[in-house]
Design a protein around this nucleic acid. Structure first.
Lengths: 225, 225
DNA sequence: TTGTTTTCGATAGTATTACTATCAATTTTG
DNA sequence: CAAAATTGATAGTAATACTATCGAAAACAA
């Protein structure tokens, strides 16, 4: 499976980029190297000039692929959730019990790397940290509604929708399935951040394995009523 | 009560500002007007030059109060959660049932304005939107650990800690009380954002009253086990 | 293999942002 | 009334976020 997915090419909404970065060597290097740099510097300190220097290319060449760093972030976030949805579909393909599918989904969200250190040249540990630290900045903007119309958040919504399906299988009458899923997916990311940086706001320590258990229990108990 | 709280002056961690904005007319105008401007423009488009123009003052005068707009955001966020904790203490003062205290807390978080349109010159509707749209940017930075040591997030942690107390009263053995509270408080903000901008990720529509009910049920069922 | 198109790197330039420094005028305070 | 603090105005710097142009190199098509 790992081998199979090494060759996977993820196609994203064309409006996110100016020129498809997976169509050229430079494009692929922009994507994989920017993941490392955004992780290292944080989104605020990262810019195209620094990336160009590191790639031994010109700033203007990077602008040929992406309008700005905001769009590049949206590219990374979309790529991640598209990948996560593939992963979820594969890992739940032969599972019929919706409780077990839900449990697997939460494990995947809490530990998205397990066995996939590098996918299509991307350092997945760095990308996971970008999702935790930076991804909410992709939609907490004044442009969110226009960008939503342009389909920039399709990947995340599609991933959540799939988990919503598991919940509807468990309890078709639960009235807040969408909210429960987005709260859970966002909440798991947040608990990872708190575990690392603001421990007073969580009960999980650094590299704690219990996050999916907490959320699984939370969901099941609320549905089981 | 409303009248009583009009005269309330909230004192915050002195490291957040260079000169206490509540000590002068200009300082108070910087605070109250920046709430309106950040709400209108979004944090990215907001800057001290635009604020200075609107206040008919010099950019350099604003820099005498705050290092930069990041610190000003931290000021607003700290002020909000300090205010919310006051409010929570007042509204639960004569309530002894921890379930009812929790229920009131969730109502307060979901509808923090109710009867307090303006507090100490601050437009609370605008401030609430800033909390929803911008507050996570205050800590999703590379400087989070240093700023945490400097006490910049004390107000939020203190607010969460108080709700954790209610949960511990209901079920002292629940192992994830901190995580449950931060997930809930963050989650309620997120659902408000989704209701407004990304409806596919929530079940609540614009100005929906059911958000606290969903979270109350979620918490109670997980504790009641 | 030659001509055409695409891609890339290099350079230059602009407007805006995020500050810092200085100084005189005004206001507050002791 | 004198001293101290505060403010407003101006100027300036370094970095950021782009945009435009152009020639060389690479890819590709006939």
């Amino acid at each position: 499976m790992n081998q199979l997915l090494q060759n996977l090419s993820i196609q994203l909404n064309e409006k996110i980029y100016l020129k498809n970065p997976s169509s050229s060597d430079l494009g692929n290097r922009i994507v994989s190297e920017s993941v490392l740099m955004i992780d290292e510097l944080g989104l605020e300190q990262f810019n195209f000039k620094k990336l160009a220097t590191r790639l031994n290319t010109a700033e203007s060449s990077i602008y040929r692929y992406f309008d700005n760093k905001h769009k590049l972030l949206i590219y990374h976030v979309s790529w991640f959730w598209t990948w996560m949805e593939y992963r979820l579909v594969f890992s739940t393909a032969n599972v019929h019990d919706p409780y077990e599918k839900l449990r697997l989904a939460l494990e995947n969200i809490a530990s998205p790397i397990e066995g996939f250190e590098k996918v299509a040249g991307i350092n997945m540990h760095a990308l996971e940290r970008i999702i935790v630290n930076e991804s909410s900045k992709a939609f907490l903007t004044k442009e969110v509604e226009q960008e939503n119309k342009d389909g920039f958040f399709r990947a995340y919504k599609s991933f959540c929708h799939r988990i919503e399906g598991f919940i509807k299988q468990i309890d078709p009458s639960y009235p807040y399935a969408n909210a429960l899923v987005s709260t859970t997916v966002d909440g798991i990311q947040m608990q990872k951040f708190y575990a690392e940086h603001l421990p007073a706001l969580t009960d999980f320590t650094h590299r704690e394995e219990k996050i999916p258990q907490m959320f699984y229990r939370l969901i099941i108990q609320s549905l089981a009523s």
